[in-house]
Design a protein around this nucleic acid. Structure first.
Lengths: 346, 346
DNA sequence: CTGTTAGCGCGTTCAT
DNA sequence: ATGAACGCGCTAACAG
């Protein structure tokens, strides 16, 4: 028989509910006679006792559940992060309520309300929008928050991020070593911390290598999607300014860029090199296999969850953890075409 | 101020908590004076009242939360299903606790325990294992269960499935029309309903077209993974029995098969055609673009959640819904090589 | 060491 | 139409 409760165990063991509660909780077990504790545990097992976390939560104000706000689970970046989150949480007996936000402010608000209503002990937020009024409100109420793969203007939230600037620096070093000079950037949305950080790193690299800043070679994507990548590269082509390499804000934008190149019969990497960011699953199985920056997705989630648990349990102070990245050189990057041999736009 | 509770609203509105409860619940609102109800609602809004679902659950035995058991979120099939689940649930004010099971019995048990402990109102199970003792136990306790993308031996669970046999029939018709006669099958795990159904459909098609059953051309995968697909195709090659086409149990197995072909320098589709199942995201961006059977992933999840809500609310009877599939012909299938022009194994 | 009591927030019954 | 009281399952404070 499953679904037994404290009262059932108490009755069967011939003791009071309070004693059962103490005996079953490792933290308070020492306060009860060893023999009776053993008997209670035996009875609990026999009766199939399972704690009712709802009841416990009402009393302890702890649901042992956290809310996870994910922009879009169908972006292969996030399932890996979620796996990390899940594994870290499980060790502590926690569970995650996972919701998709589509980076949509309205939807995000609804989800936060649904999660708050369920008394989650904290939030893991991988949604990227920076101007996050909703986030501000929950931190102000003192609910622990950790943001993942983004920074937060709010000093009350911890953060786990990948080293965006190092990643872009590695990309640029790679492209410059190949001989590229006219490098375009498909920047991520301006209201995301990754979009901002990567653009900044891109510009810093231009300076580092003495390359000219050309505003016509930077296009802002309105979202981190394949479709946005396609639109941006079309825009780039329309502007007519020659380039031999494209640094995309993330892998999905890079995929969209590849589509646009293909539809214009511009071979990659022969005439234009393309680089992504994140190294999503399948990036290496595309044609051409995508050169990209690998971010430690699982660790991002795992560390984020650990940080959150620390905040919940020990109210530990706010911190920001930056994880290292790795440039994965594959087939979408190559030396630029020789001048006069068909450089696009020249 | 957010986080107000019934008592706060009652105090401010100068009425009793019970009245506030009735006024705020649309179902019981009619039982309270229209004017006071309006006042209460106004006060609730002003104070930022949010129902505490934990408290409500303790009383109503409804957490408005369901558990979702997913084998592996990093398989792109599942995020799409989850999106459907989420959208259907949200309309009813429900939320999903999503967990990865890895199709591992131990892990599945732990997850079910964690979810049961949180008093979920029902389960959505996309895990594929058939001999599901744990599932049996929860249905026996009367907890509503819907299985997704699999059938269940247990008559107490509803199911939403894709039309596996139609899908395989379409695949076989396609291959036969191209001229294939020696068709191999990388069957999914034997303890999954999809693995069984697709193998059965494969064999039925052999009969239909008068093709010989060759047991050497059927290999069982131990899991639905890329690695398993690679292992299986290597095994197939080792057996030395010639074949010109491979019908894989799902897309991941097909990807693994493509890897094994590549490592043996067997060009696809020139010498061997490969077909997958599911049409995961990115299937069309692979090289070669994968011919596969598209299953309506979002609908699978959405219908599954609807069925579950029906069971929770109206205790509606068990049913099985089969959704239609579509063959997506892409670049991984072509006519078999002409005899004598390098057919593998001949 | 253990029993008793109280209360977390809510919905519902029973009075009035 | 509304107030009062109870209890869902659990833990924590207090007695003894």
């Amino acid at each position: 028989m499953a679904g037994a409760k404290l009262a059932d165990v108490a009755l069967e063991a011939g003791v009071h509910v309070g004693t059962v509660s103490r005996a079953l909780n490792p933290a308070t077990r020492s306060r009860v006679n060893a023999e009776t504790a053993a008997r209670i545990i035996e009875v609990a097992q026999r009766l199939g006792y399972e704690v009712n976390i709802t009841g416990r939560a009402l009393r302890t104000q702890r649901t042992q559940t956290v809310g996870a706000l994910i922009p879009d689970l169908t972006n292969p970046l996030f399932p890996r992060i979620v796996r990390g989150v899940e594994d870290s949480l499980e060790k502590a007996g926690y569970t995650a309520l996972i919701t998709n936000t589509d980076n949509d402010a309205q939807r995000e608000r609804r989800m936060i309300a649904a999660l708050t209503s369920r008394q989650v002990d904290g939030f893991l937020i991988a949604s990227a929008r920076l101007d996050d009024q909703a986030l501000k409100e929950i931190t102000e109420e003192g609910v622990p928050v950790v943001v993942i793969n983004r920074t937060s203007a709010d000093a009350r939230a911890s953060a786990v991020i990948a080293d965006d600037s190092q990643g872009i620096a590695d990309v640029m070093a790679h492209l410059v070593a190949l001989g590229h000079e006219r490098i375009a950037h498909l920047a991520g949305p301006g209201d995301t911390s990754t979009g901002q950080a990567r653009l900044k790193a891109f510009e810093a690299a231009l300076d580092r290598y003495g390359l000219q800043h050309r505003s016509e070679l930077v296009v802002r994507a309105e979202a981190y999607t394949i479709a946005a990548g396609t639109r941006c590269l079309r825009e780039l082509l329309k502007r007519g300014n020659p380039f031999t390499a494209v640094v995309a804000g993330n892998d999905l934008l890079a995929l969209g860029a590849l589509d646009a190149l293909k539809e214009n019969r511009i071979p990659c990497p022969e005439r234009v090199s393309v680089v992504g960011f994140n190294d999503i699953d399948f990036a290496e199985r595309l044609s051409p296999a995508l050169t990209t920056v690998r971010v430690p997705k699982y660790e991002l989630g795992a560390r984020g969850a650990e940080l959150l648990l620390d905040m919940i349990y020990s109210g530990r102070e706010i911190s920001t953890v930056t994880l290292p990245v790795t440039l994965m050189i594959r087939d979408s990057t190559a030396p630029p075409p020789l001048p006069g041999t068909g450089l696009f736009g020249l």
